[in-house]
Structures are given as structure tokens and as C-alpha cells.
């Protein structure tokens, strides 16, 4: 049973700065949803609210409700740890653990979960690396340090690390912003392959990328969700003047 992500009246603050204003949106399951907008518009904060990473920053606060695949993320008594296990996340800059090998990086989440059987771990590592389209490149160097790989490979290690625990949702916070065009193309290809199995939300500052990989797109401006629609619709025939200004490059 998949019901995607339902966000109702979501507000977020950093200290006194009110950075998200009453966001309400329903994100479809097993599809790719892109979040675009100029920098500082709250798009990163938005996806960090979905797996309760926002509150990690000192002074940060959230109100409203988020349901991810039926789980009420902000219900009292819900442990953020439990939420984050269901939801994988990939960050702007690749952040493999430098003291761990590629293999250990990929299975870090499983080991945290207490999985000890060698066969289960080996199998999950191979599956995740294949899903991340990295297996053929690194299968002979699984013991090498995670940071010895190229930037694009590192980012795919991080994707594999997120996928290894078989999450239902994958959040990607500008996953290609630190990568070169070839590595970016690989990641985009990967997103397209994954979309049949996972709900993916990707934040990007690159409108072409949003247009290439996503089914739906939301446009954020100054902490508000200005418009949310089918991607082709939003880019070819936006309803809101501000969206039109943004996608035609008239500001930002």
C-alpha cells in the first residue's frame, strides 16, 4: 500500500526566521517529484522537514503535519530515528564516511539496524550497489576507502548507502550540484531507473534537470509553495505569474 507523502500546513523556523509558510502538498508515490526555486527559497528546508532532519540544526522548529507512506512523522511519541530509517537521504556534497571502506559505507545503515548475518549484508550491498549503477565499477575495490573514488562515484556510494536499507522514500538535496556533467548524467539516469520502485523527492536549482527527471514539480519562493503541478504543465503553461517569471529567467 503506497500513499506517498501528504504535507499539511507545514511551517518551519530557524530561530526567529520563519522560513516555510503553511506548505500543503500531496506527493505521489513511486514517482519523481522535483522541488525548484531560487536559493534561499526554503526548498532544502522543505525536504529536510520530511525526514525530520530540519530539527537537527540548533534553534530550528517545525509545526504542521507530514505523513510519509502512512506514518505520521510529527506525531507525539514518534522517534525521528524511526522516521529516518524509512526515508533515505542524499546530500549536496557527497559525504561518504572517510574512515570506512566502500563496502562498509554501503552497509552502515544495515549494521546500525543490527543486521549481522554475513550473507544478508553481502547480498544487500551488492543489490544496493547495482541499483546505484556502481557495482561494475567498484566490485573489485570494495575494500578501498570511500573517499578514494571520484566525486560522482562517491555520490553513488551515498545513494547506495541510502538504498541498502530499502527505504520507501528517497530524498535528494541537490545531489548533482557538486558534480561534473558526465557524473550528473549518470545520476539522472539512475533516478529514472529507480522511480518505479521508490518515491523520490529531488531538490534542484537546475530547471532542466527538474524537467528531465520528474513527473511533478513544485516551485518555492520566499518560503511559500507558489505552484505545484505536473512537470510539463508547470514548465509550459504555468498558472502563476511568479512561476512564469522564474522559469523564463526573469529573476533569480
Amino acid at each position: 500500500m503506497a500513499d506517498g507523502i501528504v504535507v499539511r500546513d507545514l511551517n518551519a523556523w530557524f530561530g526567529n526566521a520563519h522560513v516555510l509558510h503553511g506548505i500543503g502538498v500531496t506527493i505521489a508515490p513511486k514517482a519523481v517529484t522535483a522541488v525548484i526555486g531560487p536559493s534561499g527559497c526554503g526548498k532544502s528546508t522543505f525536504i529536510r522537514c520530511l525526514n525530520r532532519m530540519h530539527e537537527v540544526v540548533p534553534g530550528a522548529r517545525v509545526t504542521g503535519s507530514v505523513r510519509v507512506e502512512g506514518l505520521d512523522v510529527y506525531a507525539p511519541g514518534i522517534d525521528p530515528v524511526q522516521v529516518r530509517r524509512k526515508i533515505g537521504m542524499v546530500f549536496q556534497k557527497p559525504n561518504p564516511f572517510p574512515t570506512m571502506s566502500v563496502f562498509d559505507n554501503v552497509v552502515a545503515g544495515l549494521r546500525l539496524g543490527g543486521v549481522r548475518e554475513r550473507s544478508v549484508i553481502d547480498e544487500a550491498a551488492e543489490r544496493a550497489l547495482r541499483q546505484a549503477a556502481l557495482w561494475d565499477e567498484v566490485k573489485d575495490q570494495l575494500g578501498k576507502s570511500g573517499v578514494s573514488l571520484s566525486g560522482g562515484q562517491q555520490q553513488r556510494v551515498c545513494i547506495a548507502r541510502a538504498l541498502a536499507v530499502e527505504p520507501e522514500v528517497l530524498l535528494m538535496d541537490e545531489p548533482c550540484s557538486a558534480l561534473d556533467p558526465i557524473a550528473t548524467a549518470k545520476i539522472e539516469e539512475l533516478i529514472l531507473e529507480l522511480r518505479s520502485t521508490l518515491t523520490i523527492v529531488i531538490v534542484t536549482h537546475n530547471m532542466q534537470q527538474a524537467a528531465r527527471v520528474s513527473e511533478s514539480t513544485g516551485f518555492f519562493l520566499l518560503g511559500e509553495l507558489v505552484e505545484f503541478d505536473v512537470t510539463r504543465q508547470l514548465f509550459t503553461n504555468p498558472r502563476d505569474k511568479r512561476t512564469e517569471d522564474y522559469i523564463t529567467g526573469r529573476f533569480g
Partner: peptide, 8 residues
Amino acid sequence: MTPRARRG
């Protein structure tokens, strides 16, 4: 480890 044990 169970989630509970990890919290512990």
C-alpha cells in the same frame, strides 16, 4: 539490536 535497545 531492536530499535528499543538502540534507544536505550
